[in-house]
């Protein structure tokens, strides 16, 4: 059977049409379709405008409860979700692993059942283990948003990256995006690889083989081991943080060697298109994967814009996942 052509739905036409985003949870980008992603981005665009206006608060989530359940340290993502929930009028509560009963030996499922009994609307979860949000989603009645799980996915980061690119380049389709650095340990990279593929961009990964996942070439990417080939004519250079804290054993001989060959500086950036833009999901290791001169270049670096749009994207996700639900 031929699939119907995706039709553009303006976000303002969405009232009462919860099925426009037909997912109960947002656990990953893998499995989403281009129209669904566009739907989130279109709605996020309207929230960007709202956030820049004097009247930043709206009532879409009045009376709803959003819990940020973070088993891993996070400042920007948690703050971003909290702000997003509050700007929509929801009650937002932060739970971090310190001070919760998780440290007392309570299992993840016990935690889920306990929270479930409190009638939440959205549970935003970050966890150090891949698949933990899926485990929770199977047990709770509310919507679950994956705010980063292990080395699996970080869907809202990929969505905000997409929105950032779309706002600056006007499109995603046909762009060449080079994702550089510690792809192996990066959930951001996986979500971006999925999203950019779905949206029709050309995706490259650029890293030494020790920092690439097995069979990464089967995830729809061109594999490059040098910045010289990987950055050539790229529209977007997406740098990843070297996640030393996740590394068991030695993946790299030294930080200075890494910076020499894989750190983004002006010389390497020169290989990309003249108007190529730089992104980084943060937090940055300056002098390891990125040179400060590049990171702070207001003409090329989108890093702060990513943070700004992150709030809007998360508002859109919260909105879509709670629409038509009581």
């Amino acid at each position: 059977m031929p699939t119907p052509a995706p039709t553009f739905v303006h976000p303002h036409d969405l009232e009462g049409r919860a099925h426009a985003f037909p997912h109960r949870h947002l656990l990953g980008i893998e499995g989403l379709t281009a129209p669904e992603i566009n739907l989130v981005l279109d709605l996020a665009d309207t929230y960007v405008a709202q956030n820049r206006s004097q009247e930043r608060k709206s009532r879409a989530l009045n009376g709803k409860t959003v819990v940020n359940l973070f088993f891993e340290n996070s400042t920007r993502t948690r703050t971003s979700f909290e702000l997003a929930a509050k700007r929509l009028g929801a009650d937002a509560i932060n739970m971090s692993v310190d001070g919760s009963s998780v440290k007392k030996g309570e299992t993840l499922i016990d935690t889920a059942m306990t929270l479930n009994a409190m009638h939440l609307d959205v549970l935003v979860v970050r966890h150090q283990e891949s698949g933990a949000p899926k485990l929770l989603a199977d047990k709770v009645n509310c919507a679950v948003i994956n705010a980063g799980d292990g080395q699996h996915e970080h869907p809202t980061q990929a969505l905000l990256d997409a929105l950032t690119i779309r706002q600056r380049k006007g499109k995603l389709k046909g762009l060449t995006v080079a994702i550089c650095g510690d792809v192996l340990h990066s959930r951001v990279a996986r979500s971006n690889i999925h999203l950019l593929n779905i949206m029709g961009a050309t995706v490259r990964v650029v890293a030494p083989p020790t920092l690439l996942p097995a069979a990464v070439d089967r995830m729809g990417v061109e594999v490059h081991h040098t910045m010289a080939t990987g950055l050539r004519d790229a529209d977007i250079v997406m740098m990843l943080r070297v996640q030393s804290e996740r590394m068991q054993g030695q993946f790299l001989p030294s930080q200075r060697e890494y910076f020499r060959f894989y750190g983004l500086d002006r010389d390497k950036l020169g290989l990309a298109k003249p108007d190529a833009l730089i992104m980084h999901p943060g937090p940055m290791n300056r002098g390891v994967e990125i040179d400060s001169l590049v990171a702070d270049d207001i003409h090329r670096s989108l890093i702060l814009q990513q943070v700004e749009l992150g709030v809007a994207v998360r508002m859109a996700c919260l909105d879509l996942l709670t629409r038509g639900r009581n």
């Binding site: 893998e30 891949s130 698949g131 799980d149 292990g150 080395q151 699996h152 996915e153 959930r187 996986r190 996942p213 097995a214 069979a215 990464v216 089967r218 995830m219």
Partner: peptide, 11 residues
Amino acid sequence: NAGEIASRLGL
């Protein structure tokens, strides 16, 4: 098992 599925699942 190491391979595409493990990579996708982040395991």
